[in-house]
């Protein structure tokens, strides 16, 4: 199982958390595609609370966190 935690505007039209079934080779890119979130819209991508890479394979039990960019002043 992979838990995906969504923050800020990523929650619009989605839940705060989404669960994916684990399979070998599942990665962030697959999850983003399923959630219909573009890579360029992600500012922070965490795997188990640490900075991660979208193309790296995930492990069963991992938690992904996705934050959109905040840039206004």
């Amino acid at each position: 199982m992979i838990k995906v935690k969504l923050f800020a505007t990523f929650r619009e039209g989605r839940q705060k958390e989404v669960i994916f079934n684990y399979f070998e080779g599942i990665n962030g890119r697959y999850i983003l595609d399923k959630l219909d979130i573009k890579e360029e819209d992600i500012a922070i991508y965490l795997v188990n609370g640490l900075d991660g890479k979208i193309d790296n394979p995930l492990n069963d039990g991992d938690t992904i966190s996705l934050f959109p960019p905040v840039g206004g002043g």
């Binding site: 505007t9 360029e40 500012a43 922070i44 840039g71 206004g72």
Partner: peptide, 23 residues
């Protein structure tokens, strides 16, 4: 470099605007 990963160019404020209290 971590916060604006993927060299994001556009923040969500472009869609949301900004109210009185977050600043």
């Amino acid at each position: 470099n971590y916060i604006y990963k993927n060299k994001v160019q556009r923040g969500i404020e472009k869609d949301l605007g900004n109210p009185s209290f977050t600043p």
